[in-house]
């Protein structure tokens, strides 16, 4: 907020809420359209699905299915990004549950490009799960995470940008990270896998 102004100065509307504060890259708000969401998350979701099911073709099918389902409920979903991550994960887990022993018909193609090493798949699943949990967080929290772990800012700098106190930044990041760890463990992913 601006102090009292003298003649000649133009009153400036002050940022009245946090959404006014420039958002770091990566902490997007609600996407404008389903196509925009698809374009921004395509790769991440494919990695995620692939990490769970281990087969490229299945992963693609799941991502396609997820978006077609989202399209039907687009107007009613408050947080489409969180929704699509959660759906893809559920679809993928359903797939594993329903077809545990299904093997691709084309063995050769499968082994050639799709069967990535097991730990790499696990990694993709873990990263995808984190993205899912991030997508489900309030924007403000996601913002903090991005500032700290993407832009690698110091608490001091984050405090300056967000208006939170330094102590509060540390406190919240601690809880956010802890919450993510809890979420990962609940999703059956060992955070200590490295």
């Amino acid at each position: 907020m601006e102090p009292l102004m003298f003649e000649g100065e133009q009153p400036r509307p002050s940022p009245a809420s946090i959404s006014e504060v420039p958002r770091p890259e990566g902490a997007q708000p609600r996407p404008r359209s389903i196509v925009a969401l698809f374009q921004s998350e395509e790769s991440a979701l494919l990695h995620f699905a692939l990490g769970i099911v281990g087969q490229r073709a299945v992963a693609e099918e799941l991502v396609q299915e997820g978006f077609l389902r989202l399209q039907k409920v687009w107007g009613q979903v408050d947080n489409p990004r969180g929704w699509i991550y959660r759906s893809i994960r559920n679809l993928a887990l359903n797939h594993l549950r329903d077809r545990p022993r299904e093997t691709p018909l084309d063995e050769e193609r499968a082994s050639a490009e799709e069967s990535l090493p097991r730990d790499l798949l696990g990694r993709s699943e873990a990263v995808g799960t984190v993205r899912m949990l991030l997508a489900e967080m309030p924007e403000e929290d996601r913002n903090l995470i991005t500032l700290k772990y993407h832009e690698n800012l110091k608490y001091q700098e984050i405090s300056r940008r967000t208006g939170l106190s330094v102590g509060n930044v540390g406190f919240r990041l601690h809880h956010l990270l802890k919450g993510l760890l809890d979420g990962l463990q609940r999703a059956g992913i060992e955070g200590s896998q490295g």
Binding site: A44, V130, H150
Partner: peptide
């Protein structure tokens, strides 16, 4: 555990090093 989570988070908030795309016909269709 927290270090591992931190690494995962760092990866999660960055773009994928190897971006994946749907096969082109599926992509067009979708």
């Amino acid at each position: 555990q927290i270090e591992a989570t931190r690494k995962l988070v760092e990866e999660a908030v960055s773009p994928d090093p190897v971006p994946l795309r749907l096969s082109s016909e599926r992509r067009t269709e979708l």
